[in-house]
Amino acid sequence: MSHDERAGRRDDERAEASAEPGAAGAPAFEAIGLTRSYRLDGGVQVDALRGADLRIGQGEFAAIVGPSGSGKSTLMHLLGCLDRPTSGTLLVNGVDVATLDDARLADLRNRTIGFVFQSFHLLPRTSALDNVALPLVYRGAPRAVRRERARAALEAVGLGHRLTHRPSQMSGGEQQRVAIARALVGDPRVLLADEPTGNLDSRNGEEVMGLLERLNEGGVAVVLVTHDADVAARARRQIRVRDGRIERDT
């Protein structure tokens, strides 16, 4: 298959995706009675999430806050389709994720959601450019397109001069910006950030938050999980989770 064909097909798929039912005007996330339980090795059942109802609109900037063990990370993993709920319904852009198989779910993660993790999760021994281009690899984008878009994404986070650097050659703040560039490169509609400033000092944390705010102004919904009150205060909406339930939503 030629590069052009691939690129052409990609655009077709995207057009198809936006034509899916409920895609237009549907909220980014809609959770109804979402629960998640799992068993520890000892057989003890843990109810990490005990029924969450939540609606996050397109372009929102929301913070999920709560003490550790409250279920906020579990909620985020469910929203990001990294995990499947035990019960309840989750619609992402109006699509019920329970109806999606592994491949479609992967596609949803690839095209709709960008992830930023507390510990960056960059591939070691791999340049910033290749790290950022990784999501495009799974879309079958040709190499030239991948490199071009990865470069643009890195420039957007102010790392245009660090393209060939490896994670080990960069500061924590720079690594997190690479991770944000990677989350952005596929033009997602939602960015999920799990304690994005947790491993950074206040100056770098500030820089990352500024970046997330700018992205949100550009129309991307940002949902971040944090237990840092200052970080949470930057979001326009705060969703407080406690003991597996949404305690307050302001």
């Binding site: 592994d102 992967a106 596609d107 591939l123």
Partner: peptide, 15 residues
């Protein structure tokens, strides 16, 4: 961890 990350970024099982 790498496999988890790749899946989060959109790798399918068969990838």
């Amino acid at each position: 961890k790498e496999i988890g990350l790749r899946k989060a970024l959109g790798a399918r099982g068969r990838d």
